[in-house]
């Protein structure tokens, strides 16, 4: 963990990978809703203008057209900011999920790390919204490398729609170039048997740093990347419950309906152990520097460290 931290943009990785895939796969079409220079689908759009549709500030139109293109056999990627895709919940529900068409929604600028644009844009409920839809699968890549592998995976036409959640900020690269994404599988980044921290997105990096700090307090924390939120790696959750007896979840999302909820549900059913959820407590975000807001909302590295330590030392009857 002591090697120099490399930061890379997940959305740039998305745009570049999509453009590279478009070369080989002529069935790929891409839609955006006037945010292509931010979501980075413009890289594809400039290379393949005939297969790129800028639908304007009209997300419902984008989603329905994406559904139609997918029904017609195309491999479809549709992008906008996470918050704006949620404008179209019932359109996704009927025209995509109920229709059983494999539209790939790759959204960017999710969560508080979006920063200065503030609470109107910082969606913190989307993982829950999308996970609740039948047929929909939900992936939150942890870094630029996982983003590329997820996009490669989705470029081979699937049966289901996917929601891939990306962010604005550059995040530390955690995976090796050889990493291969496996749907429904988690990746253990740090082994440990005292307590488990399950996280996705930037919170995995934070958890790893918190785990390093906990080491000096003789707490050996396991840190797992739960990028595949739906389907989720039940086995890894149950194993963590058995091995470590307590689980902390950490997510850049509301504590409702996200990873914390899923982990709690699964351990309740399979192997009840105490779970501590770290996330946004049913509140909106705040304008500010994206990476400073985690400390502001007490979900930063030192908060994860403190909460995990206290939770570890807490006695449950």
């Amino acid at each position: 963990m002591q090697k120099t931290e490399i930061l890379e943009s997940l959305r740039e990785a998305y745009g570049e990978e999509l453009a590279a895939l478009g070369e080989k796969n002529r069935d790929i079409v891409v839609l955006d809703a006037d945010l292509s220079s931010s979501t980075k689908t413009d890289i594809f759009g400039k290379k393949f203008p005939e297969r790129f549709y800028n639908m304007g500030i009209a997300e419902q139109s984008m989603v329905t057209a994406a559904a139609g293109l997918s029904l017609a056999g195309k491999t479809v990627f549709a992008s906008t900011f996470a918050v704006f895709l949620s404008n179209t919940y019932n359109v996704i529900r009927q025209s995509v999920c109920y229709n059983e068409v494999p539209v790939n929604f790759v959204v960017t600028h999710a969560g508080i790390s979006l920063g200065e644009d503030g609470p109107t844009h910082q969606i913190l409920e989307d993982v829950g919204i999308m996970s609740g839809l039948p047929n929909m699968k939900v992936i939150v890549p942890v870094d630029s490398i996982e983003t590329r592998r997820v996009i490669d995976y989705l470029a081979v036409k699937k049966k289901n729609p996917y929601y891939v959640r990306l962010t604005r900020e550059k995040f530390p690269v955690l995976n090796e170039e050889s990493y291969e994404f496996k749907e429904g599988k988690s990746v253990t980044f740090r082994d440990g048997n005292d307590i488990t921290i399950m996280a996705y997105g930037i919170m995995v990096s934070f958890a790893l740093k918190a785990a390093e700090a906990l080491k000096s307090k003789n707490i050996d924390a396991r840190v797992i990347n739960m990028s595949s939120i739906k389907p989720i790696d039940r086995d890894a959750i149950i194993k963590a419950a058995r091995d470590t007896g307590k689980i902390v979840t950490a997510e850049e999302h509301s504590i409702y309906n996200g990873l914390g909820s899923r982990v709690s549900e699964i351990v309740s059913e399979e192997y009840p152990v105490p779970v501590k959820r770290i996330g946004m407590p049913d509140i909106f975000g705040k304008s500010g520097k994206g990476m400073e807001l985690f400390d502001y909302f007490h979900i930063g590295i030192s908060d994860i460290e403190k909460i995990t330590e206290n939770f570890y030392r807490e006695e449950f009857k």
Binding site: Q60, S61, V63, G68
Partner: peptide, 17 residues
């Protein structure tokens, strides 16, 4: 279809393809 307002957009997707 059933929830209204969606079919025209879906038809547009077919037409684009």
């Amino acid at each position: 279809t059933g929830s209204l307002g969606q079919g025209l957009g879906v038809a547009i997707g077919f037409a684009l393809a």
